[in-house]
Design a protein around this nucleic acid. Structure first.
Length: 906
RNA sequence: GGGCGCGUAGCUCAGUGGGAGAGCGCUCGCUUCACACGCGAGAGGUCGCAGGUUCGAAACCCGCCGCGCCCACCA
């Protein structure tokens, strides 16, 4: 210990910026984060990281989820080493749309668009981009202390992974679940691609609702309402409800489409709401999902008037061709107005679909895309959650998952992008046959004709759906797959529950026959301190790396875990500060103990101390008992994903028990020991116990605050092992000591009460006050009480001398001297401070404002009286004694007795 | 339209059937031999409102008010 302790002596603060990089390096060099694949998954522990976007950077969500996962990983790694191998599977996602958009934007600054570059060259540029910016986020995870297996980083587009994706496509195509269809899709003009329903967000907007009159062949008219008049150019019918008496005669006749002149059948369909507007509805199958369905039922024509560029088409856009949708709307309305066809305009608030990817307004349009039918995949994935093979925590998300899965719809899996997994589909240019194969066939299987590969790539989420097993080498039966699949838990925010988690469960069961993880932990979304969403564009984002820079990774981890809960929470800088304070406190507590032990025992003997629970005194038994409780609480809380209470419980123990009380109490013993000489002075036992408590505390805290604990481990453990590879402490039930807990609880309360009294009478901080302890239950703790409350508790024979000195003693003197003399009158106390079990009688009022003490006493009396009245009232209330549980009644009676006793001595 | 959740101290949040809690902020006092990113002591709350269940409600139930999120094909 000696030399190392010396260097510790001057470090009065824990300096994360100095310590953390050094520790990361040691961890990485140790190889501890890479488990050799052995055994089967049920005896090991694994988590697959939600792969961050390859060119992304660490945001608060990553930081929280990183802290959550790393806490679980470290806890489990420590739980049963080395028989349990623990792996945190690391990798990144190619993030099709996001990455492509980034690169396109960068190219644009060079004045290049991707089409000029061509597909191959463009994809080459994206790979370069990835090589350049791709490592960032992984490096940032290291700064957080995340103990991922960095030696095996995967990427959703790497070779093996891509093969897995192709294999899945081919397999599901052959099963008939993947198919090609002309269907109305969510077209995102921003990324020029179709996107899935889940990538659409609805925004509330106010538009104008126009009522437009269409003439009817042979006289009369219909009036339809629309917020999108420009789409009327694509109308192919007008519909009314079949039960609508008003319009029965119209059905079967034809309406004449204004501006275009097309004759539209008037049909009956019960989709139409009779009570909305006029109850007459224009049908535009090519640009509205509902109308598309109605169109299919009635075999209506589909006229596409809006193109993939978001402009009116040349084919059907009439004289509006080339205008944007908004320009066309204005122009159409102007013409209709000139023709006097607009019957009414009103403001109308409704939901408008926007692309979650590009932020642009979605244009529903008909397009030839690839889809996956989900019903067969969903069924076993529903069962898995229903029967508990997959557990969702917190549980209220279970229903959300089940509801969505039970109403699942086909998934549009093709994207009109270049960056991604290109579909393994090859069209024959001769006969049109669709060839689907793992690797490109030379020629068409039907006619040997020339083949052309599908241009589209797969939705990014198609490949991420395979994440937990494709990262481990699936479809090959690798040792990694055997050792770590299925994984144990998937931790994420709820925004990708459907987008990703549900799809992993479906694909996992379908392809591997097993659920990909047994627990899904849904963590909080961290909002900005003002309650808004954290976002770059709003300027509400807080950069976790800057927080790490200024407070340390432990502080950020602790803070995020402490603020997280089962719902969304606002970012709390105070919690981060609390974490920073904890790291510093723990560091100083350990430093203090080590330096003192070293000084009191001498380096050579200090080194020989074996940390173990050798309790000699009541405070030793107390801290060991409290330690045992916090050890078991913390373990249970981590296992239950209750990170907030795990973190705060640790804080409470370190501050409220270890530092505020235990160290304050043994401080004196440690310093006495330094001067004491005898062999059997208890210094070995104290050192052993103190070191034991520190080691257990530091090890317990390690999954939550790994850096400061790892740093301290160097001084607490001589083996040279990293704490990250050591065992998690076990709660030893035999160290629970109820008696010691009760005695210390009483003493702590007494100390606090006396300090409060001292404060009220203006006693100087360092001043010792003469007093006599008149209370039961302090046989073992009286010296502690005296020292912590700064009382000079006078022994019987000293008392009268002291009283003589202040002139309050009876003249005839010493009470304790035996003999036939008269017993002296009891010394007059100048004040009486009630504590549990009795009072502290203050014998000297020198320099004290006893008037203030009297006022305080009166206040206490009033409080006591009120409390007594309350409890008494409760006991007298009809029904309480009869109906409340006996234990509660007994508790209240006991309390009443205690309160009365307190009042008596006051 | 359906669903989930929230409203507790100045702020951010715990507490979910029997004595209102924490961190920060605030007030007072401390160079008490680990830590001034420290230590000690305090002030501060009719637990959103109104009803109900109960011997007993911050907690359970009903309604209302306010706020947030998710899902959903009414132009």
């Amino acid at each position: 210990m000696g030399e190392r302790i010396k260097e510790l002596e001057d470090r009065t603060r824990f300096e994360p910026a100095e310590v953390e990089p050094r520790i990361v390096e040691r961890w990485l060099a140790s190889g501890l984060f890479h488990p050799e694949p052995a055994g089967v998954a049920s005896e090991n522990y694994s988590i697959a990281i939600p792969p961050p976007n390859v060119t992304g950077s660490l945001h608060m969500g990553h930081a929280l989820n990183g802290a959550v996962q790393d806490t679980l990983i470290r806890y489990n790694r420590m739980k049963f080493p080395p028989t349990r191998r623990t792996k945190w599977i690391l990798g990144t996602d190619h993030a099709g749309i996001a990455t492509q958009a980034q690169v396109e934007k960068a190219l644009l600054t060079e004045g290049i668009n991707r089409h000029e570059l061509g597909r191959e060259a463009f994809v080459e540029r994206v790979w370069e981009w990835r090589a350049h910016y791709g490592g960032t986020i992984v490096e940032q995870f290291k700064r957080l202390g995340a103990s991922c297996d960095y030696s095996e980083e995967r990427f959703t587009l790497d070779e093996g992974y891509a093969r897995a994706v192709m294999q899945v496509f081919v397999k599901l195509y052959e099963k008939g679940w993947i198919y090609r269809d002309r269907y109305i899709v969510n077209w995102d003009p921003g990324s020029r691609s179709a996107i899935s329903d889940l990538e659409v967000e609805e925004r509330r907007e106010t538009d104008t609702l126009y009522s437009i009159r269409y003439d009817v062949e042979g006289g009369g008219s219909v009036t339809i309402a629309t917020v999108r008049p420009e789409t009327m150019l694509g109308d192919t019918a007008v519909a009314v409800h079949p039960d609508d008496e008003r319009y029965r005669a119209l059905v079967g006749r034809k309406a004449i489409l204004p501006l275009v002149g097309r004759h539209l059948p008037i049909i009956a369909d019960d989709y139409v709401k009779m009570d909305f507007g006029t109850g007459q509805l224009k049908i535009t199958p090519a640009h509205d999902p509902n109308d598309f369905e109605i169109g299919s039922r009635h075999e209506l024509d589909q006229v596409s008037v809006i193109g993939e560029d978001g402009r009116m088409t040349a084919e059907a856009g009439e004289r509006f061709a080339g205008l944007t949708v908004m320009e066309a709307r204005e122009a159409v309305v102007a013409e209709l107005e000139r023709e006097g066809r607009i019957v009414a305009c009103e403001d109308y608030e409704h939901e408008v679909p926007y692309s979650h990817r590009s932020g642009q307004r979605i244009e529903p349009l008909i397009s030839l895309q690839w889809f996956m039918s989900m019903d067969e995949l969903a069924r076993p994935a529903i069962a898995a959650v229903r029967d508990g093979r997959v557990r969702i925590v917190p549980e209220n998300h279970r229903r959300v998952y089940l509801d969505w899965m039970e109403n699942i719809r086909p998934w549009c899996i093709s994207r009109q992008l270049w960056w991604g997994h290109r579909l393994p589909v090859y069209y024959c240019e001769t006969c049109g046959h669709v060839n689907v194969a793992l690797s490109a066939p030379d020629a068409c299987a039907e006619c040997a004709g020339h083949l052309r590969q599908e241009e589209d790539v797969l939705d990014t989420w198609f490949s991420s759906a395979l994440w937990p097993f494709a990262t481990l080498g699936w479809p090959q039966d690798t040792p990694e797959l055997k050792a770590f699949y299925p994984t144990n838990v998937l931790s994420t925010a709820r925004d990708i529950l459907f987008l990703w988690v549900a799809r992993m469960i479906m694909m996992g069961i379908e392809l591997t026959g097993e659920v990909p993880f047994s627990d899904v932990y849904i963590h909080s979304v961290i909002q900005a301190p003002d309650g808004r969403r954290m976002s770059k564009s709003l300027g509400t984002g807080i950069d976790p790396l800057r927080e790490i820079d200024s407070h340390g990774a432990d502080a950020v981890r602790f803070g995020l875990l402490a603020m997280s809960s089962t719902q969304d929470v606002r970012y709390s800088a105070e919690k981060v500060q609390q974490g920073q304070a904890l790291a510093n406190k723990l560091f100083n507590a350990a430093r203090f103990a080590l330096v003192r032990i070293d000084a009191s025992l001498g380096s050579d003997r200090a080194e020989a101390v074996e940390p173990q629970p050798l309790a000699r005194t009541v405070e030793d038994r107390w801290i060991l008992s409290r330690l045992t409780r916090v050890l078991s609480d913390t373990a249970v809380r981590i296992e239950r994903y209750d990170f907030s209470h795990a973190a705060l419980g640790l804080y409470d123990f370190v501050y409220g028990e270890l530092c505020d009380w235990y160290l304050e109490i043994v401080k004196q013993r440690l310093s006495d020991l330094a001067e004491a000489g005898s062999e059997d002075d208890g210094r070995q036992e104290l050192a052993a116990t103190l070191l034991y408590v520190l080691r257990e505390t530091v090890a317990m805290a390690h999954p939550l605050i790994p850096f400061v604990t790892e740093e301290l481990w160097r001084y607490l453990d001589d083996s040279g092992e990293l704490l990250a590879g050591c065992s998690y402490p076990r709660a030893r039930e035999d160290l629970i000591d109820l008696q010691a807990e009760a005695e210390l609880a009483r003493t702590i309360e007494a100390v606090t009460l006396v300090r409060g009294w001292r404060d009220s009478v203006g006693a100087r901080a360092g001043q010792f006050v003469d007093a006599r302890l008149c209370a039961d239950g302090y046989e073992l703790t009286a010296p502690l009480l005296a020292r912590l409350a700064r009382l000079r508790l006078l022994a019987e024979d000293e008392r009268s001398q002291a009283l003589d000195a202040v002139g309050t003693s009876p003249a005839n003197g010493d009470a304790s001297v035996a003999g036939g003399r008269e017993p002296p009158a009891p010394p007059t106390a100048v004040a009486s401070v009630p504590i549990p079990g009795g009072t502290v009688e203050v014998l000297s009022g020198e320099g004290l404002d006893l008037g203030a003490a009297e006022r305080r006493r009166e206040a206490t009396r009033q409080k006591l009286l009120a409390e007594i009245e309350r409890v008494q009232g409760k006991l007298e209330r009809s029904g309480f004694v009869q109906k409340a549980p006996a234990a509660v009644v007994a508790g209240e009676r006991e309390r009443l007795g205690r309160l009365r006793a307190e009042l008596d001595v006051l």
